[in-house]
């Protein structure tokens, strides 16, 4: 087995450049083009929101980045290393953390056991440094009080928080979140946004796939808009959310969907 610590050290000394990079990623399902020549760069400590209407290819893009799906062509580069052909668990060991659109904590296990499962088996006292993001989130989300409860007894928003903490448990450099605030109240959503922003400021790179425009306005600096499987627009959040064409494909559609 590859020694995780060794890989991590090699990557860190690799220094500069984007921490996660996609080059001309393509994926088709039958006749449907789900990803079409996507180029994407994420810098260290950056917080990026990926938005787009339903069917824009957000979930496919997400799955290609973390290795659930193999791309038809193109490359994924994590911390300077081509990971296109690495299975998902190897990418996670290299420093990728992620949560799913639907909640997938282990419902039969307690909160403490969920976090224990997410911990690296070989982690000992030496892992204290990569623990920082996890401890910050664990404290902010106040999960200690319910650590003995089975996960299925947690209220919805705490389950989402638990999943974020699980994804942080190994000390990733990049966190991929697929609709982390789905189903949360506005207050909970804004609180989650605050915590994620703090993590980003402390050096964690984040990609958040989101629908909630208020959330996106609050957290993002740069926004990537996906439409029909390709990058439609990319830029500062204030600019992007003002653009008429973006409103048309994204905001317009959402209003339709809501109606």
């Amino acid at each position: 087995m590859v020694n995780d610590a060794m890989v991590n050290d090699a990557m860190v000394t690799g220094g500069g450049g984007p921490v996660l990079k996609a080059e001309r990623l393509c994926k088709r399902f039958g006749g449907v083009v789900a990803s079409d020549q996507i180029d994407f760069n994420l810098e260290r400590g950056e917080m990026r929101c990926v938005i787009g209407p339903n069917g824009a290819g957000k979930s496919t893009f997400f799955a290609l980045l973390c290795g659930i799906l193999p791309p038809d062509s193109g490359r994924v580069i994590l911390k300077g290393r081509d990971v296109t052909h690495l299975p998902a668990f190897r990418r996670v060991r290299m420093g990728l953390g992620l949560t799913f659109q639907t909640n997938r904590a282990f419902h039969a296990l307690t909160v403490a056991e969920n976090l224990e499962t997410a911990r690296r088996a070989s982690a000992s006292a030496s892992g204290a440094a990569d623990d920082a993001h996890f401890r910050a989130a664990f404290g902010a989300f106040d999960l200690a009080a319910s650590s003995h409860l089975p996960a299925r007894e947690l209220p919805h928003h705490q389950l989402q928080w638990l999943e974020i903490c699980m994804a942080l448990r190994r000390g990733p450099d990049v966190l991929l979140l697929d609709e982390p605030t789905a189903g949360m109240s506005p207050g909970e959503t804004m609180y989650t946004a605050d915590v994620l922003k703090t993590l980003s400021r402390e050096g964690l790179a984040l990609i958040v796939v989101e629908h909630d425009v208020a959330f996106v306005r609050k957290v993002a600096e740069t926004v990537t808009v996906l439409h029909q499987g390709s990058v439609f627009a990319e830029g500062p959040v204030e600019v992007i959310t003002q653009r008429e064409d973006v409103r048309q494909i994204y905001l317009g559609r959402t209003r339709e969907a809501a109606a």
Binding site: P87, R93, A118
Partner: peptide, 10 residues
């Protein structure tokens, strides 16, 4: 409980 979730925990 969940094969994919476990894989994506590394």
């Amino acid at each position: 409980e969940d094969v994919l979730r476990t894989e994506l925990l590394g």
